[in-house]
């Protein structure tokens, strides 16, 4: 019997075809680079705001809410000074400092109870630009220490006062 003589020797290298893999890998890379989008982090302010029940008596044990009045100029910017509980403020920083003093007042309810119970009611003009409202919420909610990254919490409960009645213009 005659056997076929094989020419291949055992030390032959089997070479992998790298070209298709590199093609695919580069296509994937291009796809990911093209679809990559740098998105800034978004954060939330949670507000629990049920529809106001009519005729409900306010709870006497609760702290009365701080009423913050934000009035708009013609162009929608914030009119300064603005009012909170009869006091005027030129900027949100001074408002924040006032609230921190209220929170740390030794004759007050104490910082923990203040943070839990204090509430700010926002009375905003219809045409006020929304970023001023967020700035106000930012100032009222807490103070960020940029050096340490820690936040001093101030007022956690925030609500909007019912919008002024604009029955003729509402929902245009």
């Amino acid at each position: 019997m005659k056997f076929r003589h094989t020419t291949s020797s055992g030390d032959d290298k089997i070479e992998l075809q790298m070209t298709p893999m590199i093609d695919i890998v580069f296509q994937l890379l291009v796809f990911f680079i093209m679809t990559f989008k740098i998105v800034a982090q978004e954060g939330d302010f949670n507000i629990r705001m049920p529809l106001a029940s009519e005729g409900g008596a306010p709870d006497e044990s609760q702290m009365p809410p701080y009423k913050l009045y934000l009035t708009a100029n013609q162009d929608g910017t914030l009119e300064v000074p603005f009012l909170m509980d009869g006091l005027t403020f030129d900027n949100f920083k001074s408002l924040q400092e006032h609230l921190i003093l209220e929170m740390e007042d030794p004759n007050g309810v104490g910082p923990e109870k203040f943070q839990e119970e204090a509430e700010v009611e926002l009375h905003c003009d219809y045409g006020l630009r929304y970023d001023f409202v967020i700035q106000a919420i930012d100032a009222v909610r807490g103070k960020l220490d940029r050096a340490t990254g820690q936040t001093i919490e101030i007022v956690q409960k925030i609500k909007f006062a019912p919008p002024p009645d604009r029955s003729g213009q509402l929902f245009e």
Binding site: A40, Q41, E42, G43, D44, F45, N46, I47, R48, M49, P50, L51, L70, G76, C124, D125, Y126, G127, L128, R129, Y130, D131, F132, V133, I134, I137, D138, F160, P162, P163, P164, R166, L170, F171
Partner: peptide, 30 residues
């Protein structure tokens, strides 16, 4: 939108409240 009128946003909140929704999250950019 940062330049939207606050009243418009309050209108939307009011419509949501009328449908029984009471938990709102205002989103802002860090």
């Amino acid at each position: 939108h940062r330049e939207a009128a606050t009243g418009k946003i309050q209108d939307i909140i009011k419509v949501c409240q009328e449908q029984g929704f009471d938990h709102f999250t205002l989103r802002a950019k860090e």
